[in-house]
Amino acid sequence: MTRAELATGSAVFLAIVIAGTASVKQVDRHFAAGSAPAPSTSSAACVGEDGSWKNWIWANVPALSPKCE
């Protein structure tokens, strides 16, 4: 490997690292600025008698939620 090849490879590697870091920061900024859905404030998430989730708007669900009253 010549010095020119080493310099070129190092420059490409550095450019990829910088571009990756910049894109991660930009994506974080983009999603942080978006409006996240707010959880229901009327009551907490609970599991209904049929096993479905109540008062929970996200696709993932909290573990060990109480039964609905």
Score class of each variant (00 low, 15 high):
Ser23Glu: 10
Ala63His: 04
Ala7Cys: 03
Ser52Ala: 08
Ala11Asp: 06
Lys54His: 13
Ala32Leu: 11
Pro66Tyr: 04
Thr21Gln: 10
Thr8Gln: 11
Ala33Tyr: 01
Trp53His: 01
Gln26Gly: 01
Leu6Tyr: 13
Ala19Asp: 04
Val27Trp: 05
Pro66Trp: 01
Thr41Tyr: 05
Val61Tyr: 07
Gly9Ala: 09
Ser35Cys: 07
Ala44His: 06
Ser52Leu: 12
Arg29Lys: 14
Val27Cys: 02
Asn60His: 03
Ala15Arg: 04
Leu14Trp: 04
Ala59Arg: 08
Ser10Asp: 10
Ala59Ile: 12
Thr8Phe: 11
Trp53Asp: 06
Ile16Cys: 14
Ala7Phe: 07
Ile57Glu: 06
Ile18Val: 15
Gln26Trp: 13
Thr2Cys: 07
Cys68Ala: 01
Leu6Asp: 05
Trp56Ser: 00
Thr2Lys: 00
Pro37Ser: 00
Ser52Tyr: 04
Cys46Tyr: 03
Arg3Trp: 13
Thr8Lys: 14
Ser35Arg: 06
Gly48Pro: 01
Ser52Thr: 15
Pro39Asp: 13
Ala44Ile: 08
Cys68Glu: 02
Lys54Phe: 01
Ser40Asp: 15
Lys25Ile: 12
Glu69Val: 03
Ala38Arg: 14
Pro39Ser: 03
Pro37Glu: 14
Met1Asp: 06
Ser40Leu: 13
Ala15Thr: 01
Ala4Thr: 07
Trp58Leu: 14
Cys68Asn: 00
Ser23Gly: 03
Glu69Ser: 12
Ala11Glu: 09
Thr21Pro: 00
Lys25Tyr: 13
Ser52Phe: 00
Thr8Pro: 01
Leu6Thr: 08
Gly34Val: 06
Ser42Ala: 09
Leu64Phe: 15
Ala11Asn: 06
Gly20Pro: 01
Ser35Ile: 11
Ile57Gln: 05
Gly48Arg: 15
Pro37Gln: 08
Lys25Ala: 11
Ala44Val: 07
Phe31Gly: 03
Thr41Gln: 09
Asp28Ala: 07
Asp28Lys: 13
Arg29Cys: 02
Leu64Met: 08
Val61Lys: 14
Ala44Met: 05
Asn60Ala: 02
Ser52Arg: 14
Ala33Asp: 15
Leu6Gln: 11
Ala33His: 04
Cys68Lys: 00
Thr21Trp: 12
Ala45Tyr: 02
Val61Ser: 03
Ala4Lys: 07
Ala59Gly: 10
Ser42Asp: 14
Asn60Leu: 09
Glu69Thr: 06
Asp28Gly: 08
Gly9Ile: 01
Leu14Asp: 09
Val24Lys: 10
Gly34Pro: 00
Pro37Lys: 03
Met1Lys: 10
Met1Val: 12
Lys25Gly: 12
Ser65Gln: 05
Trp58Gln: 07
Glu49Arg: 09
Trp58Val: 02
Met1His: 08
Ser52Asp: 09
Ala44Glu: 10
Ala32Gln: 14
Ala36Lys: 15
Ser42Lys: 12
Pro39Arg: 11
Ala22Asp: 00
Phe13Trp: 10
Ala22Lys: 06
Gly51Asp: 04
Gly34Glu: 15
Trp58Cys: 03
Val47Glu: 06
Cys46Asn: 02
Ser52Ile: 03
Asn55Ser: 13
Ala15Asp: 02
Ala7Ser: 03
Val24Asn: 00
Lys25Asn: 11
Trp53Asn: 00
Ser52Val: 04
Asp50Ile: 00
Ala63Ser: 05
Ala44Arg: 08
Cys46Lys: 01
Lys25Cys: 13
Ile18Leu: 13
Met1Trp: 07
Ala32Lys: 06
Glu49Gln: 12
Cys46Phe: 04
